[in-house]
């Protein structure tokens, strides 16, 4: 549904988004994952026309966002849950949205119920909302027009574990009904649980993309770590089967799946002492990405790592 091609945005000499291309499909949640400052928000702003691209295009269902009639009815957007008028009540914020999209007022009540904001809470002023309530209100706003596409920038920010679970179920259900979701996050574990597809971005460039399962298992980058009693014999046997290998640690790294390596060893009656997948997991991939885009590498600091990964930073 969302089709991004060679999208680029420069600020002076700095390329915040650097020629990214990806596609999201209906019925699937696409996670847009990258460390702080990777360019996620900038890319999303370009998709909905709030920031002009330096070059490249973004279309939704083949149409530029600006050309969609009454876009709120087709694309639900939440770029920043905090970007609402402090003095308006939650209900008023939704009412303005509904009025702008020419929706019946009843939609407001429906959406308030969907995101579990009580009537009393809906009458509070936005400035008195907790972070989680703001996020829920933002989701309600994005869903108002019953859109087929959702674009959400860090929607789980500020949600407690129950809230994150709620959001996850909501988005999964939405996608199951055929909706297209693009959601950004800088937390792998947050995205892992909800996304079907993943687009990894770092320093404005796409570093990896694909469906979660294949990215996670590293199937596409088949690699096995193996240690045999006689490594040289194993290497020779592998080479005869056309499988490349090189020494690593106490054994070999083989450019093949673990099953292939096991089969070769069995056929050549070689004793293995260790055999496991040497593919990079998603977390390794992401950590590496995060580390290489860190201002300070975690290892060079005095323990106050500034990572924002699943490991969590020390106090």
């Amino acid at each position: 549904m969302i089709d991004v091609r060679e999208l680029t945005r420069s600020y002076g000499a700095h390329r915040a988004v650097d020629g990214i291309s990806f596609t999201t499909r209906p019925g699937r949640v696409t996670g847009f994952l990258g460390p702080n400052g990777a360019g996620k928000s900038t890319a999303m702003r370009m998709i909905i026309g709030l920031t002009a691209p330096t070059s490249g295009t973004a279309t939704i269902g083949g149409v530029a966002y600006q050309d969609i009639v009454n876009p709120g009815r087709h694309v639900g957007v939440l770029l920043d849950a905090g970007a609402q008028h402090d003095g308006r009540t939650g209900r008023e914020i939704l009412t303005i949205g509904a009025q702008t999209m020419r929706l019946p007022r009843s939609r407001v009540d429906e959406m308030l119920a969907t995101v579990s904001l009580s009537d009393e809470e809906a009458h509070r002023r936005f400035r008195d909302y907790s972070l989680g309530m703001k996020q829920r209100l933002g989701i309600a706003h994005a869903l108002l027009g019953d859109p087929a596409v959702l674009i959400l920038d860090e929607p789980a920010n500020g949600l407690d574990p129950a809230g994150i679970r709620w959001m996850r179920d909501l988005l999964k259900g939405y996608a199951r009904r055929g909706g297209t979701v693009l959601l950004s996050s800088h937390l792998l574990h947050e995205v892992e649980l909800v996304a079907d597809d993943l687009v990894l971005i770092g320093r404005g460039r796409i570093v990896a993309q694909g469906d979660l399962a294949s990215l996670g298992s590293g199937d596409g980058r088949g690699a096995a770590l193996v240690t045999a009693q006689d490594n040289d014999a194993l290497a020779a046997a592998l080479a005869r089967e056309g499988l490349r290998s090189e020494p690593e640690g106490t054994g070999l790294r083989v450019h093949a799946g673990t099953a292939d390596v096991g089969r070769v060893a069995a056929e050549h009656r070689l004793v293995l002492t260790d055999l496991r997948s040497g593919a990079q997991g998603l977390e390794d991939l992401f950590l590496e990405l995060t580390a290489s885009t860190q201002r300070e590498a975690p290892s060079t600091t005095d323990g106050h790592a500034t990572t924002s990964t699943t490991k969590g930073a020390p106090r």
Binding site: M1, D3, T23, R25, P26, I60, G61, G62, V63, I68, H74, A148, V149, D197, L198, L200, R205, I206, V207, A208, Q209, G210, D211, S214, L215, D219, G220, R221, Q280, L285, E288, L289
Partner: peptide, 23 residues
């Protein structure tokens, strides 16, 4: 990381199918 992962075709299996148009 980047070179191998980005060129992995597995994830883009469905992208050749035509995407629904928005009317």
């Amino acid at each position: 990381t980047s070179a191998t992962a980005a060129s992995t075709p597995s994830g883009s299996a469905g992208t050749t199918a035509t995407l629904p148009r928005l009317d």
